[in-house]
Nucleic acid binder design. Structure first.
Length: 590
RNA sequence: GCCCACGUAGCUCAGCCGGUAGAGCACACCCUUGGUAAGGGUGUGGCCAUGGGUUCAAGUCCCAUCGUGGGCUCCA
């Protein structure tokens, strides 16, 4: 959203109107910042007491009065002195002024490009330090088209060592219709929330008794996981990978060599004592893969080695960050490590990137956010190697021709990376694919291979996950399809619905035939009426409902109803099998 | 971890100003055998998250803990 956009101005202006209303309620309140954001705006305040939902109603009501009064927004450039005087009792504003004057920092603490300039916006009695731009008058805000949504805690400048402020989120649009549409979108997103669908569709559960962030996969969720895993193994063998398996715990010495105890300890669980030795649950899969590499002398002729593992790891995550399947404490990475020569690394990166998009597309994802994350402040390895590696990643991205953003300083301490994200139902982006260079481990484990020249060389190592983790990817899949999985993934593909009990035997006979053809089938022989059976199958989002009664029994047929409510009428069982097998092979359609 | 809110039957939720717990769905049994989204009846089911406190009396008020949700910070 550009600063020139009307919506940007509208949201920014609404945020000021809200701040005025809040300050009138709490004259001693302190203002932090209040920018427009995607779909709305927020404003951070330091207030004498927590806000309640009722407060939001009062604030909204007062905002409507301010809007109705149609005050003009007035822009004014001021000197540093004037600014300091004006905001003398607003410590956060003073800090902002310090930033702008001293370092040319904007309200987020980011460096400003243009020369620092102090300006304010006024309307009615309210003044705010602000670059603008704004709409001309408060009356331009449609009182029917805004809504305050929630109050949340937020650290001043996003720094957890600074004070916790109260943030009010709001949304505003040009028309009431647009607001209603937005609110409807939010409700729709909540309806397809993977946590809700996971319960409704009996896919997975999380238990207080088990521990937060630990997932139990139910039979139906596990069915889907198995399909994903089988497809994944198949694709990896096709792409020249080998599969390896490694233990889930390892001695402290291993994690010392790898550097995890130095760099990653805060994400690792406390050690367990085994005969006086410390063992740790693995937070990553790389070290054992390297041990496999080091079991013998390696020749350049073997490279590249591509070793994959669906490796389950456990990481400590702060309790507040856990989120359904998307952020958990135990998860299975669809991991692989590519060990290759420096000359091979660019092709390997290219190959992984291509493979990744192929994989994500197979699961129906079409929109991605792609990032190239570069060297962070804290890093290991030589800067020249970083540059070289970053360039290799950049060339791979350019070759594919998809738009990407550069995340400056967002790389891991051991190497630059490419990340691919997909979005969840509420618009939050979640990382799936990550392709990262690793300058650290080959060094630490003294990995070598014998080159064409008969000398020892250190190989390059690329660490990559395509789906990210099976848990997170499953969560994204659930939301993406709102639980109506494509046929190849659906835990139950076909439900047989006998009209009366006398059709049960025929239904079972058909089910046997379908199972023989490799389909996942269930017979609903509950004593319910057909309508109830259909309703139940419909709510379970089963792709095919096969109704069988006297007519079908006589004809050796099935009456096919799709979950889209389309009725295909009766067809011979073999025709149905053929249709479904085609749909499964296509990975789409019904 | 931090801020705020929440935690009542397997699920979704009522439960007033403190006076000993309720609905729908699900589940079990009985009747019904019905052609494309809920047939009817009967019944089972609750340590009101956990532990303290206030009170004659706590699902209800207070505190702590655990868990969940919305955010912040951090990550696959």
């Amino acid at each position: 959203m550009s600063e020139r956009d009307y919506l940007y101005k509208l949201r920014h202006s609404t945020s000021h109107v809200m701040a005025q209303a809040v300050l009138e309620m709490f004259p001693e309140g302190k203002l932090a910042i209040g920018p427009p954001i995607e779909d709305g705006f927020y404003y951070d305040f330091d207030l004498p007491r927590p806000l309640t939902p009722e407060d939001l109603e009062h604030i909204e009501a007062r905002m409507r009065e301010i809007i109705a009064a149609d005050y003009p927004f007035e822009y004014q450039e001021i000197s540093e002195e004037e600014a300091r005087q004006l905001f003398a009792d607003q410590p956060y504003k003073l800090e902002l002024i310090d930033g702008i004057v001293a370092g040319g920092l904007d309200e987020y603490g980011e460096r400003l490009e243009e020369a620092p300039k102090l300006s304010i916006y006024r309307h009615d009695g309210f003044v705010d330090l602000c670059r603008g731009p704004h709409v001309e008058r408060t009356g331009q805000i449609n009182p029917e088209a805004f809504k305050l949504l929630s109050v949340a805690g937020a650290y001043w400048r996003g720094d957890e060592t600074r004070p916790m402020l109260q943030r009010i989120y709001g949304t505003v649009w040009e028309t009431k219709e647009e607001l209603d549409q937005y609110l409807w979108r939010r409700e729709e997103a909540a309806r397809r929330d993977h946590r809700r669908l996971g319960k409704e569709l009996d896919l997975f559960s999380i238990h207080e008794l088990m521990g937060p962030g630990l997932i139990c996969w139910h039979p139906k969720g596990a069915r889907i996981r198995r399909v994903i895993e089988e497809f994944w193994y198949d694709q990896h063998y096709r792409h020249g990978y080998e599969v390896v398996y490694a233990p889930h715990i390892g001695k402290g010495d291993l994690w010392n060599v790898s550097g995890h105890l130095d760099f990653y300890r805060e994400s690792m669980y406390s050690p367990m004592d085994v005969e006086g030795q410390e063992y740790f649950i693995k937070p990553m899969n790389c070290p054992p893969h390297i041990l496999i590499y080091k079991t013998r002398m390696r020749s350049y002729r073997e490279l590249p080695l591509r070793w994959a593992e669906l490796g389950t790891v456990y990481r400590y995550e702060r309790s507040g960050v856990l989120h359904g399947l998307l952020r958990v404490r135990g998860f299975t990475i669809d991991d692989a490590h590519i060990i290759c020569s420096p000359e091979q690394v660019e092709d390997e990166i290219m190959g992984v990137y291509h493979f990744s998009l192929e994989m994500l597309r197979a699961f129906g994802f079409r929109e991605f956010e792609i990032y190239l994350a570069t060297r962070p402040e804290k890093f290991v390895g030589l800067p020249e190697r970083w540059d070289q590696a970053t360039e290799a990643l950049r060339r791979a991205l350019d070759a594919q021709g998809l738009p990407y953003e550069v995340d400056e300083g967002g790389g891991a301490f051991y190497g630059p990376k490419i990340d691919i994200k997909i979005k969840d139902a509420l618009g939050r982006a979640w990382q799936c694919t990550t392709i990262q260079f690793d300058f650290n481990l080959p060094e630490r484990f003294e990995m070598t291979y014998i080159g064409e020249d008969g000398q020892e060389h250190q190989p390059y190592m690329v660490h990559r996950a395509l789906l990210g983790s099976l848990e997170r990817f499953f969560g994204a899949l659930i939301e993406h399809y709102a639980g109506a999985f494509p046929v190849w993934l659906a835990p139950v593909q076909v439900r047989l619905i006998p009209i009366a009990d006398r059709h049960n035997a025929y239904a079972r006979q058909v089910a046997d035939r379908l199972r023989e053809a490799g389909l996942r089938v269930e017979v609903d022989d509950s004593g319910e009426r057909m309508n109830a059976k259909i309703r139940r199958a419909q709510m379970e989002k089963i792709p095919y409902m096969l109704v069988v009664g006297d007519r079908e029994m006589k004809a050796g047929a099935v009456a096919v109803r799709l979950r889209t409510e389309e009725d295909l009428g009766a067809m011979p069982v073999e025709d149905f099998v053929e249709r479904v097998q085609r749909v499964i092979a296509d990975k789409e359609g019904l």
